[in-house]
Design a protein around this nucleic acid. Structure first.
Length: 187
DNA sequence: TGCCCGATTAACT
DNA sequence: GTTAATCGGGCAA
C-alpha cells in the first residue's frame, strides 16, 4: 500500500507542492483517482482569490496548510483546493482533473454520464463526481473522508499557462501528467 | 446599493 | 464557436 500523505507535505512552497501532487491518489469516502492536473495560486498572484485579502469565502486559504478550500464557481459548480505553505501565505493548489480509479459506479451516478474520460476531467466535474460541496470546506486532508496516497512511481510532468483566468495569464503554474487522456484540456 | 465579472460546464448553432 | 445558468466579491457611486 502506498504511503499516506501527511499535512507536512503541504507546508512548502505551493510551486513545489503543485507538481508533486501529480500522480498522487485522492479518495473521498473511497471514491476518486489519480491526480493528473493541478494549478498553483498564491496571495501575491493577481489571479488568486486571496490576492485582495481575507473574506468569508477564502478564509480557509489564510489558515494552516493541509486543509481543503472549496469555493463556488460561476454560481453553479464547486472547485477543490489544497491549502499550502505556512499559515498566512494564502496559497493553494486547485485540483483540476483526476484519472478515475475507485468508485466508478458512484461517480457515474453522481455525474449522470458514463464515459470514464469525462467523469473527473475538470475542476467542477471532479467535485460533482466526488461529492464535494461547501460542506467539505475547511476539512483536513489527512482525515476521513479524505485520503491521499503518494505516487508509487515517478511521474513525467508538464507545465503550462493556467486555464480560465484573465490576470497573470502567462504564469506557467498549471501542471499535468504528460500524455494523460484525463486532462481537462491538452497542454 | 448596483453593476460587472469570474480558477466552469453543457447544450446549443 | 457561442451562450445560458447563477451567485459572491470587488469596486464605483
Amino acid at each position: 500500500m502506498p504511503k499516506r500523505l501527511r499535512r507536512a507535505f503541504f507546508r512548502r512552497s505551493v510551486h513545489d507542492v503543485a507538481p508533486d501532487l501529480i500522480g498522487v491518489t485522492l479518495l473521498v469516502d473511497g471514491v476518486g483517482g489519480r491526480i493528473v492536473e493541478v494549478e498553483a495560486y498564491h496571495h501575491t498572484d493577481p489571479a488568486a482569490h486571496s490576492f485582495h485579502g481575507p473574506t468569508p469565502r477564502n478564509a480557509v486559504m489564510f489558515g494552516p496548510p493541509g486543509y481543503v478550500y472549496v469555493y463556488r464557481s460561476y454560481g453553479i459548480h464547486w472547485c477543490l483546493n489544497f491549502v499550502c505553505e505556512p499559515r498566512g501565505s494564502a496559497a493553494a493548489v486547485l485540483i483540476r482533473a483526476l484519472q478515475p480509479l475507485q468508485g466508478l459506479s458512484t461517480m457515474r451516478r453522481r455525474r449522470g454520464i458514463s464515459p470514464e474520460r469525462q467523469l473527473c476531467s475538470g475542476p467542477g466535474r471532479l467535485c460533482e463526481a466526488l461529492g464535494i460541496t461547501r460542506a467539505q470546506n475547511g476539512s483536513a486532508l489527512d482525515a476521513p473522508p479524505f485520503a491521499l496516497f503518494a505516487r508509487a512511481e515517478p511521474a513525467e510532468i508538464v507545465a503550462g499557462p493556467r486555464i480560465g483566468i484573465t490576470k497573470a495569464v502567462a504564469k506557467p503554474w498549471r501542471y499535468g501528467l504528460k500524455g494523460s487522456r484525463f486532462l481537462s484540456k491538452p497542454f
